[in-house]
């Protein structure tokens, strides 16, 4: 962020466009401090195994909770399992073939696309507006800021269950209110009608993603120096011009983080879909994540091998999506049209 400060006053459009670099560089800069540490180690005569001892708790933890499960997932996906979970032998690529040829897969992939794109896009749009609001000084701002955190602090399972109760056909508050106001003649089947269910799930997805996103943007906004705005105002820029040519470009680092992290969170979101879609038959409303769980434990396949193949597929899908997004924003940042 410090570099933004020094770059920005130059006032050209190119400068803010280069702004994302620090954040990308921030991640890539990992090796730099370690090499510095390496030099200091040499001076201190601390031996390699001593360093390893210090690192070992972290390394062991990483091995135990990241690497070991990843290897297990991978080897599971190439094994044949009985319904009870007993490994019967090697499966080769049969699990992958079985998963990819499943007739429900296209619909599930489509659902996943709609779910991720809609939730992330709407969250970003509302998050930007909300961040503007939250970064202004007004009476009671502290209360509002706290209120925005609540959906984030509540457990997803509980939030989803609450929304399920709100949307319920017979006992739901929303239907009760609409009926009492004579807006609708009979209840709306929010949870049983596929398009309405998707819309309801997206609403909940946005609701729980907003706090994090809005606060990310609040932090991004507060890092923009006020003199840039002053200069723009002196030059006679309209508020909209200021927003689109100064605020938004300077928010790009925050935007990149918000989009990438939200994409991953939303893609991997399980409780909202699992609970809101809990009483529906079939796989017509599932995303890749809930579909994977159903393959493993709830569908007639009941096969952890195929589910593991689905898990590997999911990781690849989200990786590709993130890489494509980062590439797109980077090329746009490097060649502003």
């Amino acid at each position: 962020m410090a570099r933004v400060l020094t770059d920005a006053p130059s006032g050209t459009r190119l400068a803010p466009a280069r702004a994302p670099k620090p954040s990308i560089g921030g991640r890539a800069s990992g090796p730099a401090p370690s090499s510095r540490r390496g030099r200091r180690r040499g001076a201190n005569e601390a031996s390699g195994w001593q360093a390893l001892l210090w690192l070992s708790p972290a390394l062991l933890l990483i091995a135990a909770i990241v690497i070991y499960p990843a290897i297990t997932l991978f080897s599971t996906s190439f094994s044949e399992y009985s319904i009870t979970g007993i490994r019967k032998g090697d499966a080769g690529f049969a699990n992958y073939a079985g998963f990819l040829s499943s007739p429900d897969l296209p619909k599930v992939v489509l659902n996943t696309g709609i779910w991720v794109v809609a939730v992330v896009a709407i969250t970003i749009l509302i998050g930007l507006a909300l961040a503007q609001f939250l970064s202004k000084d007004f009476w009671g701002r502290r209360v509002v800021r706290w209120a925005v955190i609540v959906p984030w602090a509540a457990a997803l399972v509980i939030t989803s269950q609450l929304f399920r109760l709100l949307f319920d056909y017979y006992h739901g508050t929303i239907n009760a209110v609409l009926l009492a106001l004579h807006v609708i003649p009979k209840p709306i089947d929010f949870l049983g009608n596929p398009p309405l269910l998707m819309a309801s799930m997206i609403l909940v997805g946005v609701y729980v993603s907003l706090p994090f996103t809005a606060y990310l943007f609040v932090a991004g906004l507060s890092a923009i120096p006020t003199d840039v705005y002053e200069a723009a105002r002196i030059d006679g820029a309209s508020p909209w011009q200021i927003y689109t040519t100064i605020t938004l470009p300077l928010l790009r680092p925050a935007m990149l983080i918000a989009v990438v992290l939200n994409m991953i969170y939303v893609f991997n979101s399980f409780p909202i879909i699992w609970i809101m879609n809990g009483s529906n038959p079939g796989f017509g409303n599932d995303t890749l994540i809930t579909y994977m769980y159903k393959i493993a434990f709830k569908s007639a396949q009941h096969d952890v091998g195929v589910a593991a193949a689905a898990g590997v597929f999911n990781v690849i899908v989200i990786l590709i999506a993130v890489i494509v997004y980062v590439r797109l924003t980077r090329t746009r940042a490097e060649n502003p049209s």
């Binding site: 038959p281 079939g282 017509g284 159903k294 709830k298 007639a300 396949q301």
Partner: peptide, 17 residues
């Protein structure tokens, strides 16, 4: 019948459709 375990799951998931 072990096959019932899977038949049951299909009924549960698909009879609603």
């Amino acid at each position: 019948d072990p096959e019932w375990d899977k038949v049951k799951l299909t009924i549960q998931q698909n009879i609603g459709l």
